[in-house]
Design a binder for these strands. Sequence first.
DNA 1: CGACATCGATATAAATCGATGTCGGTGCCTTATT
Length: 498
Amino acid sequence: MLEDQLRRYFGFTTFRPGQREVITDVVARHDVFAMLPTGSGKSLCYLLAGYQLQGLVVIVSPLLSLMEDQVQHIRLYGEKRVAALNSFLPYEERQSVLQQLKALRFLFVSPEMLQSRQLLERLQEVNVVLFTVDEAHCVSQWGYEFRPDYLKLADVRRQLGAPPCLALTATADQRVREDIIDKLKMSDCHQHIYSVDRKNIALKVEAVQGTLEKQDRLIELVSMLQGPGIIYFSTREWTEEGAALIHQYTDLRVAAYHGGMANEERRLIQNQFLNDEIDVVCCTNAFGMGVDKPNVRYVIHFHYPKHMNAYLQEIGRAGRDGRPSLAVVLYTESDHELPLYILQKEYPTEKQLEQVIAQYIKGQDKELVATIALDVGCSETAARFLQEHISWWAPEMDSQALKQRLLQRIQERIALKTKALWELQQWLKKDSCRRARLLTLYDERLETSPKCCCDHCGLQLADFSRQKTIPVSEVVMPWERRLRLLLDQKEGSYGKKD
DNA sequence: CGACATCGATATAAATCGATGTCGGTGCCTTATT
């Protein structure tokens, strides 16, 4: 009985919604796509399935820190036959893990590590019974440009004797779900889809006039709202700026967090936040995966993300304890163009593309494509994109066809991302229930509105304020800032329309 | 797009203005014969 094992290995008496169904399908050796809400115990699915299947479970994980956490977590249950294999491990330890694969039940690896010949050969010698892809939305979100090894996982799985595949995520719309299933070649796929609706998270969007007003509003909000909270920005520089502002005008304990910081520092801030030693984190989208903190009371977007899936992932870090929580987006009209420019930098221009192909034809060295691309001024992401796609397509095409095929792919990708961005922007401007609209994007319907639903359903910010509210008038605001704000607004009124 | 840095012109001089340029997010992995 599954329940017996649940009790024996983990000390729980009942399954959470979805767990039993997913495990049953996996044990029956089907491919399974599972979209379960955050905090619903996704890891238990592959753990328990692993015990049933009697062999090695490989878990593909996007972040080293996530692997470390999960390994520790599993060890707490008394399971010692678990390891993470990654560059963080000293060389000798890595070798020792490779030598002892047979003795392991659970192995955590990155998609990049799975490109190692040595690891692959070792894995071929043992009985891999389940291939798990955790945070599976990364396949679709990162595989095409940022981390191409995510698109090679299907081939890795085939080389391991095509064990069943379990893909786990908390947020993916229909298109992303189909993309994941397709890219992982999950042919015999059983899907378990649960609602993305988080009824205890109230949704609010505020349009403001200009950046200064946005900063002021941010300070008002964090002064007033019950924390702890997370604030998302779109650049590293702004996370520092935001943290400095909050430090200056409030007594809150605040820190910035972004991908440019040293790993130890990032780890420290994440831990301090988890231990309630920091009230507010000002961060880029680098922060969040694996941050399983129950009592986050609000998430503010100072800059909004690039698509709804990201928005849902980010606000989903609030209210995991089930208590009322708040998600606020602050936006100005001028926020609308920037994401498009950032998006285009992921790809080469037509001119760069021609230069790279011309150089490549001369040398025929796939490994050099990225170097050439960087030389002609491509971003690193664009260089990787070219490297990847040319190595797929160049063998079977002449340079003209290759160029056309690449241009077509670039256009497709940009169109797709522009549409996703547009969808989010439309949602921001929506003047009816935000939850209802959000759910239709995920093919769901809102049956009954929760008590605190959204700003179009009578949301009261006061319901989310601290016990001891600091009146806004007491928030220190020097006259220089006030004046600049006034001038800014005046200028804004002469600004261009739409 | 827009925030910010740099540069040159301006012209009783130091500081200011406008023109021009650059940059913007996410993370694995780096196993040397110069």
